[in-house]
Each structure stands twice: as C-alpha cells, then as structure tokens.
Design a protein around this nucleic acid. Structure first.
Lengths: 226, 226
DNA sequence: CAATTTACTGACCAATTGTTCAGAAAACGA
DNA sequence: TCGTTTTCTGAACAATTGGTCAGTAAATTG
C-alpha cells in the first residue's frame, strides 16, 4: 500500500490520460520488485497488485497479460540502460574510458538495484524474452567496444594479455555483483546497506584492478619486497 | 528415518535401501535444474517430477514438502562446495593462492553450472534459506581469508590499494558470471557452449588481472608507449 | 449540466499449485 | 514360500494461479 501520491508531478487539475501514466508506472514499479525477487514464474499478479495498491483485475486493464506486463517491464529497463550506454572512440584515452565505464555501471547498479536483479533473473532463465536484445543491440554495442579495445591492444596502448570480451564481462560482473548478490555482500561484510562511501571505495578498487590489469595504472607501491 | 546407507557405491545386486538413495539423487538432480531456472516459487513439483521421471506424489514420499526438498537441495550443494574451500596459511605464496582460487572456482562453476545458478537464485531472493549459512560458516571462511590478505598487504607482499573483501568478491563474481550469465555470454560471443580451451583462456585472463591488480604479476609487455 | 470516454471492480472460470491419504505394487528378509 | 517393509500411485483436497467479463464508478469533454 504505497502512498497515495508519491508525486513528482502532482495531480492538481490532471492532464488527460494522466491516470493511465501514473498507474502504469506504479504497476511497473511494483512488478519490478516482485519479478526481481521471485522470477517470472514465481511472481504473481496478486502480489504485484497488492504492492501497487490496486485491484488484481485492474492490472490486466493496463497490461493485456502477465507476460505483456513482464515484457513491458523489461522494455522500460532496457530503455533506461540504453540511455547510459555512451559511445566511445578509438582515439579516446583507454584509462579514461575504462574508469568511466566502471563508475557508470556501478552507479547504475546502485541506483536501480531491483532492475539489475530483474535482468539477472531473466538471464538466469536463459533470457527467453531478451534473446533478441542480447543477439541484437547489446551484441552490436559490445562488439563495437571489443573491437576498439582490440585496436588499443594492437597499438600497444593496453597489455596484450587482455581479452576484450572477457574484460567487458569482468567489469559487468564485478559491478553487477553488488546488486545481484547484495544479500551475500551485506552478510559477509556485516553491513546493513551500502552507502556512498562504499560505492566510492569499491569504485576505486575496481578501477585500480582494471587499470593495473590493462597495464594502465601508475605502479604506486608495487608490493616490492620478495 | 534418514537413508539407511548413503554409501556412494552403485547398486549391482542392489543393496537394501538402494532405491531410496537412487531416487533421492534423481529428484535432487531434477530439482536443481528446475529451481535454478525458475526460482523457488516458480519451480513446481510437477515439473520436477516430470524431469525426474517419477510421479508427483512420489516426491513427497522422499521429501516431506516442497520446502524440505529445496532445503535438502541447498544442503547438498553447500556440502559439495565446502569440500572445495581449502584453507590457506599466512606463509603461503599470495600469487599461488590467488591463482589456485581463481582456477578452482572457475572449474567448480563449470562443473556445476546448475548448482551455481541455484545459489544465485537463492541469493537473489535475499537468501531466505541460506541466511544462517552466509552469516555463519561462509562468513567465517571469508573473514579468515580476508585477514590473511590484509596481513600480506601489511607485509608489503601485495599492493596496498587492494581491498581484501572486494578482491574476494571480484574473484567470486567474475567466475560465477560464466554460470549465472551463461545465456548472455554465449549470445555476446556467438558461441554455442564454452569448452575446455575457453575455460583455460578465461582462467589465464582472470589470473593475470588479479595478479596484476595485486602487484604480483611480471610486467611482461607493459603497454609502454604513451 | 449531460454525454462519452476512461478507469475500476467483484464475481466467476478453468487450470495448476502443494499436500494428504488409502491402498496397490514391488522389494525384501525369513 | 510367506509376511513385512518399502516404494509407488491415483484420486481427491483447498488454495492460488492467470484471465474474462458484465457492470459500476470516475473522469473528461461538450
């Protein structure tokens, strides 16, 4: 039972069709939590309706089916993410690109942890609804970056032991981890939640690891001795 | 009550209670796949029974409830994993320890991808059934390793920019990724499955990244130029 | 205001869920 | 062989699932 108006744009005189937009968003937000936690099969419309503060039958007025709702939710998530997938150029600075990628992904995962877990849940199932997205736009985006990484390696701008795809997967997985495995991270660190300073610290560490592995880090205090 | 003899040895003339052992294993194997794919709520006894080739009611002869089956499955999985959590000593060689950790985890994830995904699914839910495992034995194990890593850093045997817990999470997440996000990895690399040479290559890359980040790698071809 | 579109609901449906149980079938020990 | 234990099953259970629909309520438009 969410608040009646959680409102950014509060309904005063209400533009036409505003109810629709507001309720669709409410339903999607509720569905995000439920599907992220219990998966597609395990998530029920009743649970979503309850968390959205609406009648169960009302969900099917806005979305034609459970599957339709799920797909719409995935589309909203992908749209949000796509806006953050900035392009890169061969002439950019590798260290700059990699650090900003790590920081951006970490911020994204922290801002939308539910969406991140939803994505994880979908891929865990074998990505039945996202197969075309993975094979299409996402692969195109990844290949573009992998190609540029490969060029940087050829040019000697990065350690040649780096595997472009594996590097992208490393950044993806290490950042995603703090959403998908949040329960484990919190249990193992004895924390209750991760705050801004944690994000900063983790980002520092990951950037260091990535840059060092790519041969781009200043070897400050290089563990000299034996 | 419990299995009369849980001996591994297979049934030739059929020892007493062998049927029980065999069918329990069959059910657990089937449940692993179903729960890993659809989560606890989303996995149905009907689906498990069908994949196990048994009648639905028969599952509840061996396991008292769906929850009981799920818990037994998690216990089997944790028991398998615990046997691979070898201890380490402060006087071990850091590079040796880290590489063997990466390789072992990668092999584990590849050998038991379903179990890995099952674990991911449970943690995604907030680890409702594994909370005590995370807070207890796993945390003890992680803290022990983190302490030793911290000592190595103090001694100057590892780069002091390394965060022990974050390093463990990095190794965990990057290896786990190849099971949990298998669908994505395959789609983005255009592969049908990962073979031994892939595992070798990925292991090489991850070991390099980890060692370099810890200041333990030979700076072979250090991406010199600018 | 009235007319019309949009929003919402409760009741109902067939299918599936986990679970129980009496009893059949099979395996076992004698 | 017989008697006992173990294994297995089909039918039935209450509850819940996604989905439909007729009809009501609210909002928007004129």
């Amino acid at each position: 039972m969410a608040g009646k108006r959680q409102g950014s744009t509060a309904p005063d005189t209400l533009g036409a069709g505003a109810v629709r937009v507001r309720n669709q968003a409410r339903i999607l937000d509720a569905a995000e939590g439920v599907f992220a936690t219990h998966g597609y099969r395990g998530g029920s419309l009743s649970a979503i309706a309850q968390e959205a503060g609406l009648a169960r039958a009302n969900l099917l007025y806005y979305f034609k089916s459970k599957r339709g709702l799920y797909v719409a939710l995935l589309e909203r998530t992908m749209a949000r993410w796509n806006s953050l997938l900035e392009e890169i150029d061969i002439n950019d600075d590798p260290a700059q690109v990699l650090t900003s990628f790590v920081r951006a992904k970490l911020a994204l995962v922290r801002r939308y942890p539910q969406a991140s877990r939803l994505f994880a849940s979908e891929v865990l199932q074998g990505a039945p609804m996202l197969q075309t997205y993975l094979d299409g736009p996402l692969r195109t985006w990844v290949d573009a970056r992998a190609t540029i990484l490969a060029r940087w390696i050829e040019r000697g701008q990065m350690d040649q032991r780096v595997d472009p795809h594996a590097l992208i997967f490393l950044i993806w997985s290490t950042t995603q981890h703090y959403a998908d495995y949040e329960a484990q991270v919190l249990a193992l660190t004895g924390r209750k939640a991760l705050d801004n300073s944690d994000e900063q610290r983790i980002g520092d560490f990951l950037c260091h690891m990535v840059l060092a592995g790519c041969g781009l880090s200043d070897p400050e205090r290089p563990a000299g001795s034996l």
